[in-house]
Simulated assay, not measured.
Amino acid sequence: MRIHYVPTVLLLGSALVLLLVAGGLLLKGQVVRRTAQRFRARAVAVRATVVGLEAKDLSLGGEPDTRYFPRVSFVPDGAAGPVEAQTLTDVPAPPPRVGDELDVAYDPERPERVDVAATQGGLEGAGRTWFVLGYGVLLLALGVAAAWLVLVLVVWTS
């Protein structure tokens, strides 16, 4: 059996780089999830008035899925005046109208960070995109390593 060094270095090197990228993406997902946990641990619930609504169409190759992110106005504890902020999360359907009241949670350290209280149930969505990307790149890295192994066992042993 003869090892071909250029394809070996290219395939195993790219597999290693992809593993590092996958690790970085998974680490970013963990950071996002921890940030969401800290936000929810210190968040203060308040009733806010919807002053605007932004519709965003999200699509992954299929029909767009419209999500609504309200702009709300509320008075944080100890503040002299109201704060107006865009929510970090979308609202469940049907979306509220301007003038409706909505339960939100805000960060007392940064009152412009507002989350819709109806989405406070779980953290399963926090960092999900980073985890999916990380696992996808990890599979790609394993596929590149498997391709090298096939070359070694099938092609180069002939």
Rank of each mutant, 00 (worst) to 15 (best):
F74G: 13
G62F: 08
Q86G: 07
G61K: 01
L53Q: 06
L88H: 03
P94E: 04
A141T: 04
L12V: 03
R113F: 08
P64I: 07
V51A: 04
F74Q: 01
A15H: 02
V83W: 11
T66H: 05
R113Q: 01
H4M: 05
A85K: 11
G99Q: 03
L102T: 00
L12G: 00
T8C: 08
K28F: 06
G81L: 07
L140C: 11
L88D: 05
D107F: 01
R38Q: 01
R40T: 12
R38A: 00
A141R: 03
D77G: 15
T87A: 05
A147F: 05
V9H: 05
L153V: 10
T87D: 08
D103I: 09
V116Y: 09
D65R: 05
G23M: 04
I3R: 02
V116E: 02
E124H: 12
P108L: 05
L123Q: 13
R71D: 12
G61L: 02
P82I: 02
P95A: 01
V9N: 00
L142A: 10
Q30R: 05
P76V: 10
L10Q: 10
L140A: 02
R40Q: 14
R42Y: 10
P96C: 04
S14N: 03
Q30K: 02
A118F: 14
D90H: 06
Q120C: 11
W156L: 11
L151M: 12
V116L: 07
D65G: 06
G23W: 00
A146Y: 10
A105L: 14
D107V: 03
A141I: 07
R33L: 00
E54T: 08
E54Q: 11
L19F: 13
L25T: 10
V46E: 13
R38M: 07
V51Y: 08
L26D: 09
R47N: 04
L12N: 00
R2Q: 15
G81P: 12
V104W: 11
G121R: 14
W130C: 00
W156C: 06
D57L: 06
R40C: 11
G121Y: 12
K28V: 15
R97L: 09
D115N: 13
T49K: 03
G81E: 09
F131Q: 09
E124V: 14
R47F: 09
G13T: 01
A105D: 06
G52P: 00
V75M: 10
Y135R: 15
L16A: 14
G24H: 07
A15M: 11
R67N: 06
G125C: 04
A79P: 04
T87W: 02
G121F: 07
E109R: 14
G122C: 07
D90S: 11
S158F: 08
W148P: 08
L11F: 12
D90P: 04
L153S: 12
A43C: 14
G136K: 04
L18V: 07
L149W: 06
S73Q: 03
A145I: 00
L151Q: 15
R42N: 03
V152H: 13
A93S: 15
A145M: 04
T157M: 14
V17T: 11
V91E: 14
A118G: 12
D65N: 10
G127W: 06
L151C: 13
A117R: 00
A79K: 02
V72N: 01
D77F: 09
R67E: 12
